[in-house]
């Protein structure tokens, strides 16, 4: 029941943004539509709805977004420089890193942030062993520990606070 309510609230916010200058008709139709969707698919959305009540998680999310955007901008400039340089300075390879995150959402967000940060692209996740396979455009170290330190550690701490 709780996760249906959470999905209802999230979906209603999206509905309001989609039909922005909000009038009464849209608000009523939104209640019906989002209610139906929440009733049908509520169980798929989240397994631990009580996490949505913790305020500290939102604060950490607020810290995480600027970090993510900054890394994203750096990644773009990095890739653009590599692409434009005549030597094509790439040194690619697939490395293996370890992570301590366990939950689905945290792993998804970790993979997304890794993909959008400089020179790395997540190829596969092994959830049981906590292993990520990452394509790195400029391999600086093919050992597991060193690569983990270089790629994952920036994001692990805020993501652990947010999703675990």
């Amino acid at each position: 029941m709780k996760n249906k309510i959470v999905l209802f609230l999230v979906g209603y916010v999206v509905w309001i943004l989609l039909s922005w200058p909000l009038d009464r008709a849209h608000a009523y139709v939104g209640v019906v539509v989002v209610g139906l969707v929440a009733f049908l698919t509520g169980d798929l959305f989240t397994r631990r709805p009580h996490h949505f009540l913790h305020v500290t998680r939102y604060l950490w999310f607020g810290c995480y977004v600027p970090l993510f955007l900054w890394e994203c901008l750096k990644a773009n400039i990095d890739v653009a420089l590599r692409v434009l340089s005549p030597h094509l300075p790439i040194n690619p390879g697939i490395v293996k890193v370890k992570t301590t995150l366990k939950s689905d959402t945290a792993l998804t967000f970790l993979a997304n942030s890794i993909t959008l940060t400089p020179g790395t692209l997540c190829v596969d996740i092994d959830q049981k062993e906590g292993v990520l396979y990452i394509h790195w455009i400029d391999v600086r170290s093919s050992e597991v520990e060193k690569a983990t330190q270089l790629i994952v550690e920036r994001f692990e701490k805020p993501l652990k606070k947010i999703f675990e």
């Binding site: 994203c72 773009n76 653009a80 692409v83 434009l84 790439i90 959008l116 692209l121």
Partner: peptide
């Protein structure tokens, strides 16, 4: 445009994917 140049210039699928996804 940089992303699309990367799609043309880089040598294999994974590198191309890097350039296009980010840029």
């Amino acid at each position: 445009i940089f992303g699309c140049i990367g799609l043309i210039r880089l040598p294999d699928v994974y590198n191309r994917l890097q350039a296009t996804t980010k840029c």
